[in-house]
Structure formats: C-alpha cells, structure tokens
C-alpha cells in the first residue's frame, strides 16, 4: 500500500495504490488530508485506479476525510473506481449523497473548476 500525493490543475490528487485497509492505512490518509487542509488545499481527488481492495474501515476513513474537508468548504471526489470498489460504494449508496465520482483524473480535477464545492455548511452537520 502506498499513498502518493501530487498537484494537478488546482486540485490535489491522492493515489491509493494496493490494498487500502482502514485500520492500517487510515491514519496515514488522515495525516495527509490534515496537512492539505492546513495548507488550504481542500480540493482533493482520490485516485482509485490502482486500489486493489478496500475494506469497510477504509471506506470509513474516506467518509471521515470527506466530512472534515466539507467542514472547511472543500471536497473529496473520487476517480477511477474499479468494479469491486465501485460495487462497495454503490451498495452503501455513498456515490451521489456523499461522494462524486469520475471516470478519469482529468474529469475529476476539472470538476472542481466547473462545479466548485458549496461553501462550508453553517451547522455542524
């Protein structure tokens, strides 16, 4: 498992490569996201092209990251979901109500230009 970060067109792309297990790799993702938030970089794309597997607590780590980015007016959007992970996100109904998902990195990064995230919600929810 590796978590790699690069910047592209005003967004930050985080690539999760390998098996993403929440209990093992969740803390590293949280650190990465916290550092980005600190630096004011809150337009984040998670690239799942090379993510072989994600367990439920891995999904939980992404949800937590999404919640924390939304609180500061940013967003986490997903790109390149492979079949199994797509099924997991479809079943839990997370695509739509929570995560926007895109077929490619370009579309995902471009989406922040075309459709910037709504301002931070004023209530805690």
């Amino acid at each position: 498992m590796s978590i790699k970060t690069k910047e592209a067109y005003g967004a930050v792309v985080i690539e999760l490569r390998g098996k993403f297990l929440g209990s093992l790799h969740g803390p590293e993702l949280k650190q990465t996201l916290d550092a980005l938030k600190e630096a004011g970089k809150t337009h984040v794309v998670i690239d799942l092209a090379n993510t072989e597997f994600m367990d439920s607590s891995g999904v939980g780590a992404l949800i937590a990251g999404h919640t924390s980015m939304r609180k500061v007016g940013g967003d986490i959007r997903l790109a390149n979901l492979q079949k199994r992970i797509r099924n997991l996100f479809m079943m839990t109904h997370l695509l739509g109500p929570v995560f926007d998902s895109f077929e490619s990195l370009d579309e995902a990064t471009q989406s922040f230009q075309d459709d910037p995230p709504a301002p931070a919600p004023t209530d805690a929810a």
Binding site: I63, M90, M91, T92, H93, L94, P97, V98, A125
Partner: peptide
C-alpha cells in the same frame, strides 16, 4: 434492488 445510504454517514437521509 439496492437501498439507501449506510447509517451514520450523513445526519439526515
């Protein structure tokens, strides 16, 4: 067919 969002993700669903 599939259902709705997992619990405890959003406060309202």
């Amino acid at each position: 067919t599939r259902g709705g969002l997992a619990l405890c993700v959003l406060g309202e669903f």
